Amino acid sequence: MSTLFVSDLHLDPSRPAITAAFLGLLASDARPAEALYILGDLFEAWVGDDDPGEPGASVCAALRDLVDAGVPVWLMRGNRDFLYGQGFAERSGARLLPDPCVIDLYGQPTLLMHGDLLCSDDLAYQAFRRQVRDPAWQAQFLAQPLPARQAFAAQARAASAAHQAQAGMETITDVTPATVADTMARHGVSRLIHGHTHRPGLFPLEVGGRPALRIVLGDWYEQGSVLHADADGFSLSRLPV
């Protein structure tokens, strides 16, 4: 058996084929897995656990089915869905992970992150991240009526789409190598798995003069992307949409 990792699905009502592909994964390849880790940006936006709409409702039910079948699901907040709370966790059965966190993966400590903290050269984004992760800001936002939060998210998605159409996906800042090495050294690991940058691959590096490995998960914009991990190693696979 293997452990599965995904991130950056950006599920949204405007992209039903991607949602269908993920639901298909949950109903098939994920069933014999030892665990499923979702490292952020499962949804394009998450405005609060009280939103009953799609695709959140279907995905939540499918995750609960997987958990009830005996497969643990671990969920990390991303830069698009940082407002997950205990309500979502209880409905889906997923267990929330801090970012960053270290797990034992087949006998080796492995650092898991969404990845946006590693893009430390993007000072404007890091300032935005600190703002929206502040508990006071989140409490104020969640206190607004659901339609107001949904309208805010729709405007943010439109602005993001327009920006990406003009500048291309390369506008997502890549990681800062020194920050990667410093973060891995601080956590005492030689292996890191993250998403966010939409630049999938297995990237060897050195940390403290020793060999290390950074594994980047792929996005789900044009195809699915799944990392399979087992005691023998890692493989990234693409899923048709």
Rank of each mutant, 00 (worst) to 15 (best):
F82L: 13
T110H: 07
C119V: 07
D134W: 02
P55L: 12
E90H: 09
L118E: 07
A30Q: 11
L23M: 12
P100T: 07
Q138C: 06
A94R: 03
F128M: 14
L118F: 11
L26H: 12
Y125R: 09
C60S: 15
L25F: 14
L142S: 11
G93W: 05
V6D: 00
F141D: 03
P13M: 01
F82E: 09
P98V: 01
G78H: 05
D116T: 05
A124L: 13
D49Q: 11
L118W: 02
S7I: 01
P52M: 06
F82I: 12
R133N: 14
A139L: 07
L142F: 01
W137E: 02
A148R: 10
A69Q: 09
F88P: 03
V47T: 13
W74A: 11
L83N: 10
P145S: 13
F5C: 07
L146D: 00
L83V: 04
L142Y: 10
A62N: 05
A124P: 02
R15E: 15
A89H: 06
R77H: 15
S120F: 04
L142Q: 13
T19R: 00
F88D: 00
Q144V: 08
L25K: 08
A57N: 04
L111W: 08
D65W: 03
L42G: 10
Q126W: 02
G53S: 13
L75S: 05
D116N: 12
I38W: 04
D51T: 03
L117E: 13
L4F: 13
I18H: 10
R64Y: 03
S28W: 01
R31I: 15
D134H: 14
F141Q: 05
Q126E: 08
R149E: 00
R15P: 04
A62K: 04
L117Q: 14
P72D: 10
N79G: 06
S14P: 00
S58V: 00
R31E: 08
D68K: 01
A45R: 13
Q126V: 08
V6W: 03
T3Q: 12
A61F: 06
G115A: 12
Q126D: 09
Q150T: 07
V59S: 10
S7L: 00
